[in-house]
Design a protein around this nucleic acid. Structure first.
Length: 425
RNA sequence: GGAAGGGUGGCAGAGUGGCCGAAUGCACCGGUCUUGAAAACCGGCAAAGGGAAACCUUUCGUGGGUUCAAAUCCCACCCCUUCCGCCA
């Protein structure tokens, strides 16, 4: 959620910052357009209500005293009766106004950080650096490699569940498992993360806190008849560890890593990446989440990104780092680095990790605060990033490790998970 | 799923209609004492919203109701604990 105090104090500045995401974000159809007025009426009504409530409370107290002294209360009772009925009416009106105002606020995206490059589309994203040697020879697509080697069974996935589901077999299934374990081991042993294992189902409050709801309900799988959704990312369950909590400053910064399956309906991406395992309804991911003091957000983002990069380097996968421009930022993010891995069959880089600072956007929605000594609690900053997506990582290993003899070279760090084996197939 | 008990501040835990936003303890912050620390003692300390401030409002699981007045009474729901059933 945007900072409501900022909205009241300097709406123009906020509008300018939001506008960098694109004209649509602040046009006449936008949530932003309504926000200021709705907040104002909501506050006016509330002030009026509070004055009446104060009056009612005063009368009630008087009645109490009169009763105690066995004095006559009829006059006071009459006075309070009028006030009470108006309080009831106004109370309903205030509730409605607040609901309306809050709902609109929940639809407004985060403001981009001042350091984010401005742009109109993903073409304006900024290349930052690359690592490794991108092989330029012809390599078969992972779906051909996977089918030939009996690693990937696309037909079985469709039979069991439907399109965009895949079955992994034999060494590929083991590779998926090895990748999970390798990534978690690395983040825990070398990067100082606390590992957590969380539910893969979350309720509406949780999804609202991290920003998937109310706006992106169509992207989620909802469980019928229950207040429950399959999580689209572990960011949801891990960040919500701290929802409605006041964290002692001494325990910050917090760094969690978690493995979870992720579920996405991919509504609106019909026809995109239909072949292979790039875009699945269910995929595995190791996620990194940081909770830090607000002024530490950007430093933490650099750190988190470097931890995700370390995974790709250890797996000997060539990649590049791109900073998203203002129009390509996700709803909750204030600044994002994408890690893109080299896919030699397509001769291009594909996203394998997205590392973002949410600033205080999520912590305001989720009421995640920290206490600094005696002072009032203040909102923390939250960050998250994939460390990394496992399915796409598996694809990258199949393609980048592919050899003319049909075997797959296994990165050194994974060999212990295969009893020392150096090649798959 | 059935039965019983319970949900109160950062934590523990009192509180059955007004003097309760709420005793007490722990934790935390400030101070006295001390060479320093501990102990002891004194003081402070819930959150959210509005306001320049004084101060006001709201919040005792959630929602509704009764009442001039609800943590306290009534109804529904959610969650927790224990026992039974079922189950990996």
């Amino acid at each position: 959620m945007i900072d409501i105090k900022e909205l009241r104090r300097d709406p123009e500045a906020l509008q300018k910052a939001l506008g960098k995401r694109g004209a649509k974000v602040i046009d006449e159809q936008s949530a932003w357009h309504e926000a200021y007025e709705l907040d104002k009426t909501q506050r006016e009504k509330r002030t009026e209500l509070e004055e009446l409530q104060a009056k009612r409370n005063k009368y009630s107290k008087e009645i109490g005293l009169l009763r105690k002294n066995k004095e006559d209360t009829t006059e006071a009772m009459q006075a309070v009766a009028q006030v009470s009925s108006r309080v009831k009416e106004l109370d309903i009106a205030v509730r409605e106004a607040e609901e309306l105002s809050k709902n609109v606020l929940l639809h407004i995206p985060n403001t981009p950080h001042a350091s984010v490059p401005e742009g109109l589309s993903e073409d304006d994203n900024v290349f930052l650096r690359q690592w490794g040697e991108a092989r330029q020879d012809d390599v078969p697509a992972h779906w051909d490699i996977g089918t030939d080697m009996k690693f990937l069974d696309f037909e079985a996935g469709v039979r069991i569940a439907g399109s965009r589901f895949t079955v992994l077999r034999g060494q590929a299934a083991r590779l998926e498992r090895a990748l999970m374990q390798f990534m978690l081991d690395m983040h825990v042993d070398q990067h100082g993360y606390e590992e957590v294992w969380t539910p893969a189902i979350a309720n509406q409050d949780s999804l609202q806190a991290t920003g998937q709801l109310p706006k992106f309900a169509d992207d989620l799988y909802k469980l019928e008849g229950e207040d429950a959704y399959l999580i689209p990312t572990a960011e949801v369950s891990v960040t919500n560890l701290y929802r409605d909590q006041i964290i002692d400053e001494a325990t910050l910064p917090i760094q969690h890593c978690a493995y979870t399956p992720c579920f996405r309906r991919e509504a609106g991406s019909a026809g995109r990446d239909v072949r292979g395992m790039i875009r699945q309804h269910q995929f595995d991911k190791v996620e990194l989440v940081h909770v830090v003091a607000a002024d530490q957000a950007l430093a933490a983002l650099e750190k988190l990104t470097s931890h995700a990069e370390a995974v790709l380097q250890a797996l000997e996968l060539p990649y590049r780092v791109v900073e998203l421009c203002t129009s390509d930022l996700g709803f909750s993010a204030e600044k994002t680095y994408d890690l893109e891995v080299w896919l030699p069959s397509q001769k291009l880089y594909r996203e394998i990790s997205s590392c973002s600072s949410m600033g205080q956007f999520q912590s305001r929605r989720a009421a995640i605060r920290m206490r600094k000594g005696k002072s009032k609690p203040e909102s923390v900053a939250t960050l998250n990033g994939s460390g990394v997506a496992i399915g796409r990582c598996l694809i990258a290993i199949l393609e980048n490790g592919w050899q003319e003899d049909g075997r797959i070279k296994l990165p050194k760090v994974l060999q212990p998970y295969f009893n020392g084996l150096q090649h798959l197939g």
